[in-house]
Structure formats: structure tokens, C-alpha cells
Amino acid sequence: MGNRNNPAEDIQAIRKLMEESSRFLSLSGLSGVIAGLSAIAGAILVYFWIPGTGSIHLEDYFTGQAVSRNLTIRWQLLAVAAVVLLVALSCAFFLSAGRTKKAGKSFWSPASRRMVINLFIPLIAGGLFVIALLMQYFVSLIVPALLIFYGLALVNAGKFTLGEIFYLGILQIITGLLAVFVPGYDLVFWVAGFGVLHIVYGLLMYRKYEA
């Protein structure tokens, strides 16, 4: 390489370096599957435990509750969502860090830093927005807002990691928008977006890059 006689190898090396230095490519597919499973576990928990009656219509359920009971439920819902997020994020972190380590690289590279920053700006904005919605009783908008902001975060981060993440983001945004247009099925859309899409995508990524 670097030899005038072999320009094809030079070009190939240049392309590879451009890709590797600007994108975080060690994102773990398995962590997507785990994120999806924990989202579904969270939904099952909410379905059976919190509303008690086993309802997917969170909005109807909330309006039928006394205010004091309402407040506890809201914090319980928030706690479940926070635990799901924590499980999903820590799995993504540890499994991806494991992959970079195996490849002999460090997890904190300029590319991974940029991916994380671009992911977290819409994600944190969305998180705060949803807490505000919860405090002001806009229950029906919570799941759609979570999906839409998360989708936007993925679209944003997609430029700095595997290109497929961009399309996962688009699908999450569509799921979130559907959830606004078809109200009352929050848990169903939560399972479809955070659960099923994650699992399908995680498996596809795992087969394509890791298996």
C-alpha cells in the first residue's frame, strides 16, 4: 500500500478509514434484543400490576381514578419506564464496549462520542418533555412522545453509527405518530416500537455483523 503500483488498495484503505473514523460500528445487535425484551417486560408489568384491572387503555384508566391514587400510579409508571431505559442503555453500553475491546480498540473514540452526543440531545429533551406531560395529565401523549423523540434521537445518531439505525429511527417515529392518530392503545404501540422493532432490528444486526 502507498505504492504507486497499487492504487486500488490505496482507495480501499482510504474508504475503510473514512468509515471507521467517523462512525461507531461496534454497536451490539444483542443489546437491541435485550432492550426489546425489557420493554415488553415493562409493558406486561404495567398491564397487570399498575392498573390492576389489566387494561391497555391508560387514558380511560387514569380519568377513572381518585387524584391521590393517580399520583402514585404516575410515579410507578415513571419508575417502570426508567428501569427499562436503564436496563436497555447499560446493556447497549456493556455489550458494545465488549465488542470494541475484542477488536482491540477503545470504546471512547471521536466517533462514539459524537454518536452519544447526537443520541442524547433529543433523548433528554424527550425525557423532560414526557415528565412534563405526566405532571400535567396529558397521559395519552406520553407513549407517542417517547416513541417520536426516541426515533428522532436514532435518526440523529444514525449518521455516526451503523447506517441501519437511521431507518430504525424512522420506523420508531412512524410508530409514535400512529399512536397519536390511533389513541387509546398506548401499551400496544409501546410494545410494537420499543419491543418488537428493537428485537427484529437487533436480530438483523446481529446476523449481519456479529454472527
Binding site: G2, D10, A13, L17, M18
Partner: peptide, 12 residues
């Protein structure tokens, strides 16, 4: 090789 690499990284 190294200079080519440096430039490739800095271009993107």
C-alpha cells in the same frame, strides 16, 4: 500509507 491515512480520517 500513514499520510494517506491521516488525510482520510481528517477529510471526514
Amino acid at each position: 500509507r500513514v499520510r494517506l491515512g491521516i488525510m482520510s480520517v481528517l477529510m471526514v
